[in-house]
């Protein structure tokens, strides 16, 4: 099977010849080809080259345009801080929506306008052209909670959940409309899977997750699936209290971070949900040995059961030994 076929088969519940292998790589990929991360996030040709090289070297089943959470915020006019060799970040103290009234005047960004969102779309196009036959090509958008936090400021958004329900709903509506269009542009460019990153959702607890975030994740996922591709939901952090809600979003693949045991995810979401994860990327993967990585994956697979995709809980950290990543490959290829 090709990587693309393997991932598709896993999602559709058909047999696979070996476990799909889809660890997130960003800075690790840039380091693989020896480029500063600033180049990776500002030039889709560099990103594509790094992803292709990394996927080839470690036999990953996919390539991805995930890079940083600031692409949409940047095109909307948020202040971004750039770094030479790490991801850019939204400057929270000068958040675009520090004044809530600004939301009424905010317009959806023109993706074709030639800025950072377009660069991601072009990255998808290049990856699809060069590897789309054999690999799953993953586009990427921000989830409602993460994007709202980027625009409003994470700390402020947390209080808005109590202080101004109407504003939060309006903001989430805006985000879902924007991300649907962003996903559509990436699918048109050749993405065969869309990943949604919604890290901030792990901070808010089950009450607000069920009331505000999950319905909008669900809406976004339904819209993207309606475009014709499956969806991966990635929420970094401790999601133990929201696992069943995550399972009801309709995501085809759900990532679990290392703080959320796969066995709990399986129990909460049922046997048919495809789970991906979840070893600690720093303590287990970067600081472990090939043997300990292999052993940890045995445990993950046993806990997750057959509907499983090999990956770490989050991004493979910079500085992770090559042999440890190859242990993931060896594990995946030896199981089906």
């Amino acid at each position: 099977m090709t990587g693309r076929e393997r991932v598709q088969a896993r999602i559709q519940g058909r047999p696979v010849d070996s476990l799909p292998l889809m660890p997130i790589t960003m800075m690790f990929a840039a380091d693989t080809i020896g480029v500063p991360y600033l180049e990776y996030v500002t030039d889709h040709r560099v990103l594509a080259e790094a992803q292709l090289e990394t996927a080839a070297k470690f036999d990953f089943d996919y390539v991805s345009v995930i890079s940083d959470p600031a692409r949409e915020a940047s095109d909307l006019g948020a202040k971004i801080q750039w770094f030479d060799n790490q991801p850019p970040a939204v400057v929270e103290t000068e958040a675009l929506l520090s004044d809530k009234a600004s939301l009424a005047g905010l317009r959806l960004p023109e993706i074709a306008g030639g800025r950072r969102m377009l660069d991601r779309v072009e990255g998808v196009r290049l990856l699809a052209k060069q590897a789309g036959v054999n690999k799953t090509v993953e586009g990427w958008v921000e989830g409602p909670c993460a994007m709202a936090a980027d625009l409003r400021g994470l700390n402020t958004l947390m209080l808005d959940l109590y202080d101004d329900e109407g504003f939060v709903i309006d903001l989430f509506e805006f985000v879902v409309a924007m991300e649907t269009e962003f996903a559509r542009a990436q699918v048109r460019a050749g993405a065969t899977l869309i990943g949604i990153g919604d890290a901030a959702a792990s901070l808010i607890g089950p009450k607000f997750y069920q009331r505000f975030v999950q319905p909008y994740e669900q809406k976004l996922i339904r819209s993207i699936r309606g475009i014709g591709v499956p969806v991966r939901l990635h929420i970094c952090g401790n999601t133990r209290k929201i696992l069943s809600g995550m399972g009801e979003t309709g995501a085809d693949i759900i990532d679990l971070d290392f703080l959320s045991p796969l066995a709990e995810g399986r129990a909460a979401m049922g046997g048919s949900q495809v789970l991906l994860g979840n070893m600690d990327p720093v303590r287990a993967l970067r600081d472990g040995s090939p043997d300990s990585v292999f052993q940890r994956l045995e445990e993950c697979y046993a806990a997750a059961g057959p509907r499983y995709i090999v990956g770490a809980g989050c991004e493979i950290a910079r500085g992770t030994p090559r042999e440890n990543v190859l242990a993931m490959t060896r594990f995946a290829r030896g199981r089906n």
Binding site: N155, L159, L203, I204, G205, F208
Partner: peptide, 14 residues
Amino acid sequence: CEEYFVPELLLSAR
């Protein structure tokens, strides 16, 4: 013990 989450903690801090 995960009865409170970040919004509740920030609210109490305020």
